[in-house]
Design a protein around this nucleic acid. Sequence first.
DNA 1: GGTTATCCATTCATATTTGAATGGATAAAT
DNA 2: ATTTATCCATTCAAATATGAATGGATAACC
Lengths: 283, 283
Amino acid sequence: MEWSDLRIFLAIARAGTLGAAARSFGQSQPTMGRRLRALETAIGHTLFQRTGDGFVLTDEGSALLAHAERIEEEVLAAQRQLDGDDRQLGGTLRISSSDWFGIHLLTPVFAEFAKLQPRVVIELLTDHRLYSLPRREADIAFRITPFREAEVISRRLMHIEYGVYLKSGFKPPRAGDGAGTPLITMDMAFSDVPDAVWLQRVLPNAHIVSRSNNRDVQARMCGQGAGVAVLPRPLGDGIAGVRRIDLGEQPPGRNTYVGYHRDLKRQARLRALLDLVIERLAN
Amino acid sequence: MEWSDLRIFLAIARAGTLGAAARSFGQSQPTMGRRLRALETAIGHTLFQRTGDGFVLTDEGSALLAHAERIEEEVLAAQRQLDGDDRQLGGTLRISSSDWFGIHLLTPVFAEFAKLQPRVVIELLTDHRLYSLPRREADIAFRITPFREAEVISRRLMHIEYGVYLKSGFKPPRAGDGAGTPLITMDMAFSDVPDAVWLQRVLPNAHIVSRSNNRDVQARMCGQGAGVAVLPRPLGDGIAGVRRIDLGEQPPGRNTYVGYHRDLKRQARLRALLDLVIERLAN
DNA sequence: GGTTATCCATTCATATTTGAATGGATAAAT
DNA sequence: ATTTATCCATTCAAATATGAATGGATAACC
């Protein structure tokens, strides 16, 4: 049984004749007659009596009419819900990013977005797992490496400068040496990131006192006077009690990329959030 | 939007891949893919994310899934109801017949049918209107004239003999005369029915004292001694206190026909009732 | 690294559905 | 009685949907 034939049945029941139903439904009279016949055959019951004046519902037809009307209501409810979500940009967006990026750069933008689109729920995931966009583990991802997946649409979002930071009032280390200088750096798994490598090259005699995979942790240790740290400038410049020091050269910056799955290209809420992020952060 | 495509959507959501859905649904993979695309276009939302491992519901897809499942339940409820009506022979049957025929001949059969099929409600209409079968004013009609409508399926049901009746103990009139004999006969509109014409021919000098369109009224008057009446024998033979008299020749009998609309040919309850009526009454 | 299995998307031939045109039946108007 | 309008059913050509075959991509296994 074709569910769509129920819609034909509804139209005929309401119009009372095949011709009138055809005209209002936008399909030809013989087609509607045939599809009604197909429905009657599929369902095993005569739904109308055919007269010269039109079609009269049988008892079975009347019973089915009640069901068909409820089905129609459910279809319309579905359409209203989806239209409403679209127009009101309701729904959830799952975002993945690194921790400091999410905390310091994304939250202001998301707070602004929440005021603009109060019905969108943003779920920000900041652990180090690489969330799979194809598997819908995340809808939008911010990464420091370019996206390689074919089904991901991405762009470079911004360039982030890094800086070297030390607690205010502490004596800066000597560039090219660093003896006696405690370092705060990335954890072992990320010890090969460009800024960590750079720091050990510039202060070859310094010693590491603290490792973390969390930039905020590094920043807090630095602020407590534990040592020297390379931090993204958006983060470091905002930490109280630390200053940026000059070691004669700049640490390497990083690009940040944003990507989403191509199947969500036309999703209104994703587009709206992305537009705002780009407007506020892109450089 | 084709409602049937919702069924495709349901199958894919449940199977998780296009191929598996196609195999279980009995339609090819490309067709299901196309119909899903058509649905997504019609509804204006992406319902699945396509991955190498199969299809993953979007939020919109999940919302629609809930609606689609309710629609499916409604369709199945409709099918169960119609199947149940059919199997249990539930529903209404509207029957039209003349009054005495309904009262004396049909009621015993209908009482028996009610015991066999307690869920069928029989509505017996015995006024003189010619109920229209095409307009579903009646489902089955019993008439003394053959059915002429093209869409009506009919058959001769039985031959009914008529007899002349008089109160027991009264003196029979003289055939060919009837002077001084009161007659009980049909009303003016039906004064030309064969038995009424016959009675006046056989007793040309008799006088009419009572007319009625109701055979039971005629029989009751006869039983009260009001006069002579021609009655259908199934009726007259059952009246207490009257006897059938012989005027030298038999009054004309009548055939009774039964008809129903051809669109109801396969309706189970109609067939069942008709079979029982034929079994009990046909001659 | 090569092979196999599984996935979805696309192409092209075939099957099915659809609609314009026509015809028969009926009712209403003239 | 004839004409007109409206109804549904049927035929045949055109349009659309469908499925078999094929190809590209990915993951798992050897």
